[in-house]
Amino acid sequence: MSTNNQVNGEVLVETRNLTKVYLDFWGRKKKEALRALNLQIYRGEVFGLLGPNGSGKTTTIKLLLGLLFPTEGEALVFGRPGTDVAKNERIGYLPEESYLYRFLNAEETLDFYGRLFNLSPEVRKKRAEELIEKVGLSRDKKRPLREYSKGMRQRIGLAQALINDPELVILDEPTSGLDPIGTRWMKDLILELKAQGKTVIMCSHRLDDVQDVCDRIAILYEGELKELGRVDELLEIADLVELRARGVRLTEELKRDLEEVIRRHGGTVESVQHPTTTLEELFLRIVRESQLHPGRRYLPQVERSPMAAPVSAGSAPVESAARS
């Protein structure tokens, strides 16, 4: 899809030689946060800005949103400069810390941001209800945000970013501070937005998140663009071949046969083994099981056993708690 967009060339966001230098009161250079960044982001793709702290990810986003002014170059969104107010009609923005008014509740928050989009009362009410439902805050919609957990604030933050049904969603560290369940929820939502045809720009320093959801990424380091391209292409290791097979046991004979085949094609086998799942997958599975079977708990004596089998649906080392 992204490739098609690139070919079709509908550029939503573009930076041309974008540079940001922070100056002190006397106009002296304090820090060069971004240096001559050139990017093009296409309609319908999920684009990740990747980099360590201070690499210029958030600065880029703030320049696109008009929160900062470029020192040199241009930051164009929908072909208009970042400082143009009208372009914001089509943008949804989730800041890193979900900086919302903590004295408002979820309904009031969405109503307030709906008013800023000049939405009529009926549309505001309808959208607010839908979004509160979507982000799973229906039961807490009357509580002030100061009572919300970090994850809940991130959810309502995302809801406010979607109140105008934007074409472009900009997410600044969307999974920062979230637990694995929240992280998965956020990633699923980003993929859902992509499925709806929306363009998503996210910046993060959590590499796994970016890998899971992004079509293309840009890697920034100390304000400079170091890498730009499709995630699958960038992550591909061209001189390694991975083989996956189902319905066969890994025996010595199989290993030898595989080595023979690989050798005949001029290569060498580095390792042959059963694959492992990710820790995230494992965690989520346990949470799902716990939700299905609330009484079950972990047996400590099993933990001490080095030979304990991995936790799975069929052979979980859990026991049913006595129910009163």
Binding site: L65, G66, L67, V85, A86, N88, E89, I91, Y93, P95, E97, Y99, L100, Y101, Y113, L116, F117, N118, Q160, N164
Partner: peptide
């Protein structure tokens, strides 16, 4: 200071 203004400026608010 609380950066709550960021969510206003990034809306179509003058």
């Amino acid at each position: 200071r609380r950066q709550t203004i960021h969510t206003q400026i990034t809306k179509p608010v003058r």
